[in-house]
Write a protein that binds this DNA or RNA. Sequence first.
DNA 1: CGCTCGATTGATCGCCGTCAAGGTACGTGG
DNA 2: CCACGTACCTTGACGGCGATCAATCGAGCG
Lengths: 225, 225
Amino acid sequence: MRDRSLCGALDKTALAEMARIGRRRTLAAGESLQFEGDDNILCANVLDGVLKLSSLTASGGAQTVGLLYPADFIGRPYADTVDHDITALTRAEVCIFPRAPFERMLAQNAALERQLLRRTLSELERSRRWLLFVGRKSAGARLAGLLIDIARRMAQTGCGTDFGIGQLIQLPLTRTEMADVAGLTIETVSRELGKLKDAGAIATEGRRGLRILKPTALQAIMDSE
Amino acid sequence: MRDRSLCGALDKTALAEMARIGRRRTLAAGESLQFEGDDNILCANVLDGVLKLSSLTASGGAQTVGLLYPADFIGRPYADTVDHDITALTRAEVCIFPRAPFERMLAQNAALERQLLRRTLSELERSRRWLLFVGRKSAGARLAGLLIDIARRMAQTGCGTDFGIGQLIQLPLTRTEMADVAGLTIETVSRELGKLKDAGAIATEGRRGLRILKPTALQAIMDSE
DNA sequence: CGCTCGATTGATCGCCGTCAAGGTACGTGG
DNA sequence: CCACGTACCTTGACGGCGATCAATCGAGCG
């Protein structure tokens, strides 16, 4: 896993330095690493589990603006305050770096900085693609897109295999959390999941089990409108 | 302006190198610099004018995922293909760098790379904040937010002043383009602008003239729901 | 002055949010 | 192992916001 994370860019001494300033922390599901508005004092790497990046709106509703999987980077170097809440969706493990020494490492290690730049660029791209979804697509399409994205990421994380047809996936999100990502309500999520089941595109197993039975059908729904 | 752009990070020899590989180009309003799916062969800096980053949906509708103002950076180093159309909204001037030599410069110039990293991080943050808007806010709130954002950016660009009450702003977007940014239809944009006028928050002058008469009222609408 | 494209205004419809009532998974304790 | 309770999820009825369809208006240009 190390080679997919930031640390893939590092040589031996840099790795040692990284290990020196970092410390592991385990988060329980629902536990938050930081809140919007906090002083920005840390960066981190996700080692295990899934976390969300979210903001609260005035009316109490939440909008999740990103999901974080193993090997993803957390934090925003050079900023003074934190822009979003970061909360563990599942039990999660992260490797935390205090921001100041981390920035010092960045300054001294061009390879690390380049890696972070690449990562940030592709995160920006992800965010923009999702913006298109939320801005223009129907509830069904958004949900299909979310499921496909989750399935892909979980498969990568799990064991490097592509996600196979009918394989059981453990969803890292509750219905409420899926609604927060997609910009929908929990009721709509439930109904649209029902439709996807009726269409035979997916099957559910308990609250968090999911099987994708017809990837192409699901993709078609995602692309439609 | 140079000190707000990427080039602010450069020393004299680097600036000369940059000038050597870059070439200016003028775009007419509506002209595109690149299209989604193209080979990724260029990066650029916006010198003047406003451009949009957009994607087309299956049904022909467009979603604009970002606006680009003077000093903003265009392009995605390290990627093979282009993710979005880039189109000039107004007559615009850009400074184009072929991607390969630009990446070579990045590799040799840590300060330039750091500057680009900072820029990308804040662009990611902008994108996520807008995601929250599009995901959760009413049509009126989205439009108010868009107007405030445009006013701020245009004021910065224009002459460094904060945007004053009642000052005339030339909108760089048509109604259709505003709709594409906000994820609305042109009719809804028109109606919501009407409401904002009725409320005395703004005044319009011809198609593209805008005055913000009550910034606080506008901000309240933006924050509401 | 007239033409054309963009903007406005009106009428109607449908998706999805809201409110409300069960129903089901899953953990806890007997 | 089963009963129970709670939190999560599903399902239904209804209403409103914004999309869609359609007609008119008006600005800006030749």
